[in-house]
């Protein structure tokens, strides 16, 4: 019987990641930013208490704001974790060693992704105490937090896969990092601008227009549509984002925006994962699919360089630096 053991890549990634000083730093920064936002908002509210009174909606407002910021933070942390997953191994010259083990390309890609997701989940769990503040004020159910976490997870998976895909596509980590961030930026901001632009030049009602569907790519829109109880607060805080949000009043579509978002993300994830796996598989069952003469030629040059010892300089540099 096959016993359940931690995949070696997963184990190694966790060990390496938690060993470096970067992890506590990222967690501290992450929580610091969330904490400052919460306290800042609370402070502003308290300042205005004289004019508006301290209403029962403070809790939900803080909650909604926190979830948005957390989503944005996750969006920006995830590509950093995955965009160097594969080409980082290649740059470090450890990838061949990995490929000649019994680990399949599928296992390498999936476990690299899981390792990054594990870290994101750690960040989310670490943020729970900040969310706890919301409970001082009430108005938020535990199930609301659960729904939001599903959006986080879907977003983290999608952005993580985009990062991994870029890391298999580009040779250099910096390039894949930049491209991943550009894609993430497009999904977070570009889709809204594009949707607003399309809506501006179209005469159809918003819910049936292509503008609406483009906005569904945006995880912020998905998040906005998943709030069942705090929808009203969104009007105040992220009015602009409500562009694509279906509220009970205008819900004449079969699916809510978050459902569209999940479906689109699912398709993107499966598609990009497949391409990544095919690209990594040197001689396996998918290798016939990667008949790109161009890329092979580059490989040949690389082999030639290896053979002729041109890369010796790199090794020596490494040595002297270590």
């Amino acid at each position: 019987m096959k016993t359940l053991v931690l995949n070696p890549i997963l184990g190694k990634e966790y060990r390496s990641r938690m060993r470096s000083w970067k992890s506590p730093l990222i967690i501290s920064l992450y929580l610091g930013i969330l904490g400052i936002i919460t306290l800042g908002y609370y402070w502003v509210k308290q300042k205005n208490i004289f004019y508006t009174g301290f209403g029962p909606d403070v809790g939900p407002q803080i909650y909604v704001m926190l979830t948005y910021f957390q989503l944005m933070l996750i969006s920006f942390v995830t590509p950093a974790l995955t965009a160097g997953a594969i080409n980082g191994e290649k740059e470090r010259q450890t990838f061949d060693l990995l490929l000649c083990t019994r680990l399949s390309a599928v296992s390498i890609v999936i476990n690299k992704l899981l390792a990054s997701l594990g870290y994101i989940i750690l960040l989310i769990i670490a943020s729970l105490p900040v969310f706890g503040i919301v409970y001082f004020f009430g108005g938020v159910l535990l199930s609301d937090i659960g729904r939001v976490f599903i959006v986080y997870l879907v977003t983290a998976i999608t952005f993580g896969v985009i990062g991994i895909f870029c890391s298999t596509l580009f040779k250099r980590t910096q390039i894949s990092m930049v491209v991943s961030y550009l894609i993430v930026l497009f999904l977070l901001v570009g889709t809204i601008i594009l949707a607003a632009f399309l809506q501006g030049i179209q005469s159809q009602p918003y819910q049936t227009s292509s503008a609406a569907f483009i906005s569904y790519l945006n995880p912020l829109v998905a998040l906005a549509s998943i709030f069942p109880n705090q929808g009203q607060n969104l009007v105040n805080i992220f009015d602009f984002l409500r562009l694509g949000v279906a509220t009970p009043g205008n819900l004449n579509q079969t699916l809510s925006p978050w459902a569209y978002n999940f479906i689109i993300n699912g398709v993107i994830v499966i598609f990009l994962l497949l391409i990544s796996i095919i690209r990594l598989d040197p001689v396996g069952r998918f290798s016939w699919l990667r008949k790109s003469a161009n890329k092979d030629h580059k490989n040949a040059e690389q082999d030639q360089a290896n053979d002729s010892g041109l890369m010796k300089g790199n090794i020596n540099e490494d040595e002297s630096s270590s």
């Binding site: 053991v5 070696p8 190694k12 470090r92 060693l97 790199n314």
Partner: peptide, 20 residues
């Protein structure tokens, strides 16, 4: 030409590949 995982110890390095 090969690289190593600089954040692993010698026995962990071998353990990783044995597991792989």
């Amino acid at each position: 030409f090969f690289g190593v995982y600089d954040d692993l110890k010698v026995d962990e390095y071998l353990d990783f590949y044995s597991a792989s």
